[in-house]
Design a protein around this nucleic acid. Structure first.
Lengths: 134, 134
DNA sequence: GTAGACATTCACGTTGACGTGAGAGTCCAC
DNA sequence: GTGGACTCTCACGTCAACGTGAATGTCTAC
């Protein structure tokens, strides 16, 4: 099938599909005209790419792990044992990002809480404003 | 003080300090030579900016909320009540981002688990590894 | 009066997964 | 044979907080 049909069947833009090829996640055949010719299995491959993107992997990592994965129809299964190492590193990256955001939210919560207690109580020392005179 | 001293005293690069001015978070005076002249209070202002950046706020939002905050020496306190609304919206944004990353990690965990059960068991059980749709 | 530290304003580079035209060629039904 | 849908390859734009020169001007200690 050509790129338009694959785009319709997967819900992914043609631009994104060309980008996936550029990142070597897809390798469609070419007609003499230069048109891309996709195989039936590419529909599922695109879905798997989306799953891995949703899992927070970069296209670079996906290109690395995708050839070594099988798709039993229900779940994506890493076929090579060393893949688990790569995936675990990305899991750690995700955890770090999550922790950073949790810490950021804690800071924000403290500021919001300070504002609430401020409106409940009269101000203690409302001078010392280093804020720009907007 | 000039920009170099402020940079040393805050640990923030001169480039960043100029960027903060561009984003209207700082408004130093100017000497006749064009050199920026910072006030003592700007040291604390810069620290507050860093706190708000660490809280996940954009420079645009910080420019919005900074003039309406007081600094009691220990904590940053929103002085205007409507600020809490803005900050709560950013808190929601953070929560959404956190949830997205948690969902991503769940997907990754399912894939990793599928790999482990694949190497542990000779026969796969696809229904067992079915991830919740979403 | 001069070396050299310090400052200034541009302005492009970084990161990633695409969006969005521009200009041109290809395919197919009528 | 033609018109319109389809596809192609560039190639810049997006978002954000800066990094990193380049070319140039200012301040200050000696």
């Amino acid at each position: 099938m050509r790129i338009g049909e694959l785009a319709r069947r997967t819900g992914i833009s043609e631009r994104a599909l060309r980008y996936y090829e550029e990142q070597q996640l897809l390798r469609p055949e070419r007609r003499r005209s230069g048109y891309r010719e996709y195989a039936e299995g590419d529909v599922r491959t695109v879905r798997n790419i989306r799953t891995l993107l949703a899992a927070g992997l970069s296209t670079y990592t996906i290109a690395e792990v995708l050839p070594c994965m099988t798709d039993d129809g229900d779940a994506l299964v890493p076929a090579c044992p060393e893949l688990t190492t790569v995936l675990s590193q990305d899991r750690d990256r995700l955890t770090t990002a999550i922790d950073d955001l949790l810490a950021a939210r804690d800071i924000l919560d403290a500021i919001i809480a300070a504002g609430r207690s401020e409106t409940a109580q009269p101000a203690s020392d409302p001078a010392l404003t280093a804020a720009p005179a907007g």
